[in-house]
Design a protein around this nucleic acid. Structure first.
Lengths: 189, 189
DNA sequence: TTTATTTTGTGACTTCAGTCAAATGTTTTC
DNA sequence: GAAAACATTTGACTGAAGTCACAAAATAAA
């Protein structure tokens, strides 16, 4: 049922069968139809989700435009870190791009589990570490590279993602105008 | 001796006197003269530092130029997350901008302490959470704002920092040419 | 102080990406 | 299928920031 999640967690650190039992008692399986929101601007994020199937996009609205900050596909976690951990209203939206299946864990349960399962806290800490590394890399992308270089980096790293996303969303994720991305694509024939 | 650090940690979560004793047995007080490196490109980061006095700048070299990614002043922690946690060669330099006093904790001790002091792992996790939030905000700065807007944001947030830093370093931190920052400053008279 | 070195400011020019507008192409929906 | 809605491409134009070169100012060193 939650095999993929179990596999994912064990990439970070191992859990005993017992610990896993305890943990999975907090899981809620959920269908999220295309177009429905897991989180909206202004709401407070109260859960972490694991994507079993489908995809999500994270964006904020700036002058009516959707500026994408992340995309989450199968086998990844979905939440807004700032809203989740500081319990502040989210500045972003998270919406299902496809009909999706997720496993939900409430924030309150999450913290209870951290307390009662030490190796789960280790997993949590390691996941946070890798999130920092990823986010630093993303900042560096903007600091060091031109729009064209950013697109090429993205191309080389996550080809799958590009196939599932409309150009418009990729452009906003790279911080460039859609017209510009269209031209970049032409240049690289 | 390590009062400031104690205060800093207790902002996140409390430690008993006993736990604090145990923790502080891993501290190494260190003087770092202006210009000496805590970490160089290619080295593997093996410690976290707490800044008691002084300041550090983090940068990478791109085509011979120093591109600054962070500045660390009193009461903050210094490390390269990626190199520290994944034990990979650092892509950045960390150097003392002033004669500084730090408290060093070795990575190996850090992880031992995480294991033996659960509330210290809670502190560690919370610090990581706030690092993610900060880093996401920094990415958003580049995605959403023009160079001038970035400078104004920085102005409004960290005035102290700007006074201690040469324009050149601020410019590279904001991802703009130093000439441009000079002109921005003029525009805002 | 004078000299040397580094840092900051200015001017002239270029370039790359943004904007606006319109055309073409592609999906949805009925 | 046709029509509508949406996405992408293309062209013409604009503008903001980068680059280069050099002057001025500030700082450090002699």
């Amino acid at each position: 049922m939650a095999d993929a999640l179990k596999r994912k967690l064990s990439e970070f650190s191992s859990l005993t069968e017992n610990e896993w039992e305890q943990l999975s008692s907090c899981f809620h399986h959920l269908s999220v139809p295309r177009g429905s929101f897991i989180l909206k601007e202004g709401q407070i994020c109260d859960s972490v989700y694991f994507v079993n199937k489908g995809a999500f996009r994270h964006y904020f609205l700036k002058d009516g435009d959707e500026i994408h900050t992340a995309f989450s596909f199968e086998n990844s976690f979905v939440a807004n870190t700032r809203s989740l951990t500081e319990q502040l209203p989210s500045d972003q939206f998270i919406v299902a791009m496809e009909n999706s299946e997720v496993i939900r864990m409430y924030r309150t349960d999450l913290f209870v589990m951290y307390k009662s399962i030490p190796s789960f806290e280790v997993i949590g800490r390691q996941m946070l570490q890798s999130m920092i590394v990823a986010q630093e890399a993303r900042t560096a992308l903007f600091m060091l590279y031109t729009p064209e270089e950013r697109y090429q980096k993205l191309l080389s790293e996550i080809t799958e993602m590009l196939k599932r996303l409309p150009l418009q969303q990729i452009a906003s994720y790279l911080g460039i105008a859609r017209e510009t991305l269209s031209r970049i694509r032409n240049r690289l024939h």
